[in-house]
Design a protein around this nucleic acid. Sequence first.
DNA 1: GGATAAAATCGACCAAGGTCGGTTTTGTCC
DNA 2: GGACAAAACCGACCTTGGTCGATTTTATCC
Lengths: 224, 224
Amino acid sequence: MPGIREVKKRKTRNAIMEAAVRLFSEKGFEKTSIEQLARTAGIGKGTIYSYFQTKTEIFHAFCEDELDFIHSELLSKTDPEAALIEQLMVLYIGEFNLISKNKEFGRLLMQQMVFPVEKDHVKARAIDDRWLTLVFSICRRAQECDELRRDLDLLSIAGHFYGLYIMTISAWYSGRIQTEDVGPELRMLFQQALEGLAPFDSAKTLRAVEVNTLKKTGTRSIKI
Amino acid sequence: MPGIREVKKRKTRNAIMEAAVRLFSEKGFEKTSIEQLARTAGIGKGTIYSYFQTKTEIFHAFCEDELDFIHSELLSKTDPEAALIEQLMVLYIGEFNLISKNKEFGRLLMQQMVFPVEKDHVKARAIDDRWLTLVFSICRRAQECDELRRDLDLLSIAGHFYGLYIMTISAWYSGRIQTEDVGPELRMLFQQALEGLAPFDSAKTLRAVEVNTLKKTGTRSIKI
DNA sequence: GGATAAAATCGACCAAGGTCGGTTTTGTCC
DNA sequence: GGACAAAACCGACCTTGGTCGATTTTATCC
């Protein structure tokens, strides 16, 4: 059984996290000072630093909670029978919704996740890996259905989609594309990634037909 | 003709930038304090803030200089006769070399360029656009040589390559891939982006031949 | 229960980014 | 050249993230 020490420790950590969720959601990450956070949690400022090494680390814990929630929610939303691109869109647009809901929070999240500092990169990878697992399972299934080439490893494939996602989000943050265009834009890019950027001459007509079929019927695309 | 005021203003700004280049290169961005910067430039701390609004903004100006240099250097290095993928590699690996030379500096650069704060996003786009222009000219040429589909707009195409680049850099910062693997990895991803992620049945064998040809001869790939 | 070691907590303190009101320099008009 | 307005400049000051040694609380051993 846990001693008084353990219980208290758990309780204090929870208090910090609860304060963080409230204050970060209320006033954003940067506008929330450690002092406030400590006061809200009912502890001293220094104590926070025996639970988290940096303010950023608190943010990470906060993100982990948020992403846990969104991931489990998205998982239940995806239909494993749907076309690959549809499943990907559910995932990525789901995450984008989280980000666009609080732009500043999302920016911090992306900055830290995509380009983590040395100190945080293990943590960032852990979060990332859970996301990858999700994408992997979808892509593996798509490979089995012949929607994806089998000669590419899953990491590469996931990389392509992830790269397009990051790039699109980047374009959004740079003001290049509007919020309502993120979805369509991403879908188009995914489609192009599947088709390939190089021309393929005779195969072109064939593929064009397939793409049209996909668009009209909404069912799985390339099939023998 | 410029009055004393203008001249002095120019001189002061230059002094700041020179100090920034020296100190940032010497000890990195974060380890350089505004105070030091001011002292080195031979001015007061407050004065800096009448030239730049934030420390980050000084960093941006610094980046612009660095990127200007690297861009012009890269432009002279690319061979317009070489295969698309080779030209892209020169560009992206060139930029990666700049980044990997000072990892922390590069991280800041990427964070600010890819996910800029509202305040900076105009500046970030300006820098970005110059880069895009470079990629555009290469891709346009590739379209004319039938290395790239003509039915895709240049922005989309550049987006694909840029996304893969960001993603690879991200993987590097997360410790997923080593410095020496960045080049090969990126090349592979570019190749896959050209080929497409979806299987294409009969066309597959044809393309495989073309790819092999490319690898062996090193010349332009798909051609009628 | 008293002594002692270890863990947890605290807030004064430090460093650094950024602000602000006062001061100096420059340009202009008479 | 003197008076005055505007721009440029400065550094004391404020805020806040993070540190550190002192203090309190908890666990253990006799």
